[in-house]
Design a protein around this nucleic acid. Structure first.
Length: 858
RNA sequence: GCCGAAGUGGCGGAACUGGCAGACGCGCAGGAUUCAAAAUCCUGUCCCCGCAAGGGGGUGAGGGUUCGAUUCCCUCCUUCGGCACCA
């Protein structure tokens, strides 16, 4: 067999070992094994696209695989699973174009990407493979949805509870009671202004709209009211924030989540409409505003309400009616894109009515402008142009007064602010604020909030940028909702034993254009008669792609369980995920949604940890050789199949890790692949005679020399340490140094070569297994103990120190490692070059830095 | 505009808690081997002056702290990522 011959034939070696691992189930994770610590390494599972794997995928997968293989050798029971996030738009769009069922396209794509993934020799436990589109999988996605549907959020305990425990007010009619309950479910329906994308024929979540166009495809998105399914993620805003302290993620990713949740503390303040006194009838409601700067109340010179504010019609005077109507209608027609584009120029219209500032009884005009959003706070603001950039801009445009009430600490700024020529948004001291003058901003905030509360004019308030999650899509290729709508208007969740509710087969995948999904056309599926004879229709919306990926890490724990989503004992054993690796593009979407579901499941007792992912690493993007983002149109896309064909999986893996830091963005280089490929060949030749395939004569049962032993132990220490800190590039460089040294040796003792092969194994597992076997071992090295290093043996006996005079290196001295500082000093001062550099002057100071240098200051 | 990360040879990048800048790899140059090429091996490779010994400069720019700064502080510039009227 060719494999037995000498040259490094990666094709045969890689095939051989991939087959071996698969047949021997080398990487099977043992549920509940109490004899070893567990370690759960998870990759963000891919969407099985028709393009197949791109080189960005193996970057994260190789990193996690190195850790998985390393942990196994360190004695951990490792769970390292893989699967497919297989619902999604491309397969559906392909179906619309060609009529091919998305299920078929998806199966084909999975088969291809599975082949590619396997060709890289990752140590996945393939017995646990899952696909979100598998009915046996989405059955449980639907099950979790029902848990959300059948739960409410208990404000006092700040947690989800079964809906049966919801305290319902007495004396409600059956219909009112039902309405009350439905309004408290974590999954609920609401008429909301949604992001409707006409080109895609579906609504999108806020997170899926980037700058007014759809994230996928870049199609225009408009606002439109529609009845949609929502998930009450906002109830979890505080917990999603607080629990970030207990996960081990980079600060920048945490910050993205914090910013997305956007918690703001301030006050809600009541403004009465001028003239709306008890004597005059007092019928009009007051306007409540939210502000984070109640300390600037004395500087409020006007108010703004959103065009959609319910009081618009009530407070508009007859004289202003026409102008206001025109403005509001124009605002309603604007898409988000328009609003973003026009953000530079403020627009607005006066209602004709004034409000009364509660702190000084001043009358201030009420304006309407679309820079105030109906969906945030109360949909109305008090405007303080002296201390808010947007209000300042608006006031300048419409000639409204600017009254400074905060004095900046900087005198120059203070002068400009006093003249109304500078908008100061920072903290300072109060001016023009009556008896509050002189107070520092933070203190003023507290005082004024209490002052308002005492008088019933305000209260402390918290607002979030985070909105409830729009959870329905008008698409075919997604999980159907396990929901029925009865003729008499009831919403019923299916019972557990009716799951999975299968996706019906349809002939036409085009959206009907009515705002419904293609499922509305599946008449047989759509219409249902309940046992009691009631007629009902199925919910025709489907879930967004995020649904399946919200909980897949739990299904891996028990992927074939048909009785429950996962076994509680297995959950307790494996959770939480110790290491999660994937792209940073999921920093807010997937990770936030997933954490939310996890917390609901935690509240309901289905999982035992508060957070799903303990440690998170984001791999950086790989650019094309030209330093540009890879794209077909640029023609700079690197195909993993080709790289593997030409250089082998081990070289591919090694190069992806050697390119640079895992988290950095970095360009591809085919010559770089060649470089690591040369390294592997060199490593091969240190062990195997190329002509015969025999073990090299130089690999002997001999005593290694001190230097080689030292280098081996240093390399063991370096490689292990680097894997722990994800410094794979420097680990590989250490192995290169080691091989360069070993290749020069006439004799390469087995006691040196074998540990090295084990070090190489997590990075380049195929070649390592082959070398291990050729060294005479029968068993796979996958569970061999990781080599240990000896600190004493790793220590350098002699140290070379630099000797500096006034910061310039003048000479070098070689000293025994244990030499004490005084002796080192003496030796340094005795150097010929140092003596001449000193030129007879006495050193002021001599600093010895252990193992580094001697610094002499004159 | 705001927030975050980062700027080191021709290129990717290294440098522990402030301690010899440029490890390792690529590329390039020269040499060995070869009829020749590939492969492999050896030598050199931050910049400037110098035949050399040696000297000077150097981690985006400028300043500061320090015996000593790629590392810490301030100002500015550039690139990338995120958010985008959230009061």
């Amino acid at each position: 067999m060719d494999v037995q011959q000498g040259t490094y034939n990666f094709r045969q070696i890689e095939q051989k070992w991939q087959k071996f691992w698969e047949e021997h189930k080398t990487f099977r994770a043992q549920d509940g094994d109490a004899s070893r610590p567990k370690y759960y390494v998870l990759d963000m599972f891919p969407y099985p696209s028709g393009q197949g794997l791109h080189v960005g995928h193996p970057e994260g997968y190789t990193a996690s695989d190195i850790v998985a293989r390393y942990k196994r050798m360190r004695g951990f029971n490792v769970l390292h699973p893989f699967g497919w996030d297989a619902f999604g738009l491309p397969a559906e769009q392909h179906a619309i174009k060609t009529g091919t069922a998305p299920a078929l396209t998806t199966a084909k794509n999975i088969a291809n990407m599975r082949r590619q993934t396997k060709s890289l020799g990752f140590s996945y436990d393939w017995d646990r493979e899952i696909a979100t589109t598998d009915p046996e999988y989405y059955k449980w996605t639907q099950w979790i949805f029902l848990k959300l549907f059948n739960s409410y959020f208990d404000e006092r305990e700040q947690k989800a509870k079964p809906i049966e425990q919801l305290p319902v007010p007495q004396g409600l009619s059956e219909q009112e009671r039902r309405r009350f309950v439905d309004d408290h479910r974590l999954a609920y329906q609401a008429d909301v202004a949604v992001n409707w994308c006409p080109a895609l024929g579906t609504v999108l979540a806020n997170e899926e709209v980037i700058g007014g166009v759809s994230e996928r495809g870049g199609h225009p998105v408009v606002r439109r009211p529609m009845r949609q399914w929502m998930l009450r993620i906002t109830k979890y805003a505080d917990r999603l924030l607080e629990d970030l302290v207990q996960v081990d993620w980079t600060e920048s990713i945490k910050k993205l989540q914090v910013d997305w949740i956007g918690r703001s503390v301030g006050a809600e303040v009541r403004f009465q409409i001028a003239g709306n006194t008890p004597e005059s009838g007092g019928a009009t409601q007051d306007i409540w505003v939210f502000t984070t700067r109640p300390d600037t109340l004395f500087g409020a010179t006007y108010m703004v309400i959103a065009p959609e504010h319910p009081l618009v019609d009530v407070i508009t005077t007859p004289a202003q009616k026409a102008a206001v109507q025109e403005y509001c209608q124009a605002a309603a027609r604007k898409s988000d894109l328009d609003r973003t584009d026009l953000a530079k120029e403020k627009t607005g219209v006066f209602t004709g009515t004034c409000a009364v500032n509660p702190v000084n009884q001043e009358k201030i005009p009420i304006w309407i402008s679309d820079y105030v959003l109906i969906s945030y706070g109360t949909g109305a603001i008090m405007a303080v142009p002296a201390h808010d950039d947007r209000d300042y801009e608006f006031a300048k445009k419409f000639g409204l007064p600017v009254i400074p009430v905060v004095e900046p600490p900087d005198p120059q700024e203070a002068e400009l602010v006093r003249r109304g020529e500078f908008c100061f948004t920072g903290n300072g001291r109060a001016i023009n604020s009556g008896s509050f003058n002189g107070l520092p901003t933070p203190e003023f905030k507290e005082k004024i909030t209490a002052w308002l509360a005492e008088r019933g004019q305000g209260k402390k308030a918290v607002n979030y940028k985070l909105r409830d999650w729009l959870f329905s899509r008008q698409r075919y290729w997604g999980e159907p909702f396990p929901i029925l709508h009865t003729e008499d208007g009831r919403i019923i969740g299916l019972s557990e034993d009716e799951l999975p509710l299968l996706l019906p087969e349809v002939e036409d995948y085009r959206p009907p254009g009515t705002g419904q999904s293609p499922l509305a056309k599946a008449a047989d599926w759509l219409h249902v008669t309940l046992p009691d004879g009631t007629k009902a229709q199925r919910e025709t919306n489907t879930m967004p792609q995020w649904a399946g990926s919200c909980w897949y890490y739990l299904r891996y724990l028990d992927p074939r369980n048909s009785a429950r989503g996962w076994d509680p004992a297995k959950e307790k054993y494996w959770m939480s995920v110790d290491l999660y690796i994937g792209g940073a593009e999921h920093a807010v979407l997937h990770l936030l949604y997933s954490r939310f579901w996890h917390k609901v499941l935690y509240d309901l007792g289905y999982v035992s940890t508060k957070e799903p992912f303990q440690k998170l690493i984001n791999q950086g993007m790989i650019l094309g050789e030209d330093g540009q983002k890879m794209s077909k149109s640029r023609g700079n896309v690197v195909n993993p199949d080709q790289v593997i064909e030409e250089y082998g999986a081990d070289s591919m893996r090694l190069y992806e890790m050697f390119m640079g830091p895992l988290e950095a963005m970095k360009p591809w280089s085919m010559q770089g692949v060649q470089g690591v490929s040369r390294f592997l060949q060199k490593a091969w030749r240190t062990v195997v005679v190329e002509e015969t395939g025999a073990l090299a004569q130089t690999v002997q049962e001999a005593q290694p020399d001190d230097e080689t032993v030292r280098l081996l132990h240093q390399t063991i220490r370096k490689v292990g340490g680097d894997i722990e800190t994800f410094g794979f590039n420097t680990a590989i460089s250490a192995m290169m140094i080691f091989v360069n040294h070993l290749a020069k040796q006439e004799v390469r003792p087995r006691s040196i070569v074998e540990p090295f092969v084990l070090l190489l194994a997590p990075f380049a597992p195929h070649i390592a297994e082959e070398l291990w076997q050729r060294l005479g071992h029968r068993e796979s090295l996958a569970h061999q103990p990781w080599p240990k290093y000896n600190e004493e043996l790793a220590k350098d006996k002699q140290l070379e120190l630099a000797v500096q005079v006034n910061g310039k290196v003048k000479d070098r001295i070689v000293v025994p490692a244990e030499m004490d500082d005084e002796q080192v000093k003496a030796k340094a001062l005795a150097c010929e070059k140092v003596v001449s550099a000193l030129a007879g002057k006495a050193p002021k100071k001599v600093i010895v830095v252990k193992g580094r240098l001697v610094s002499i200051v004159v």
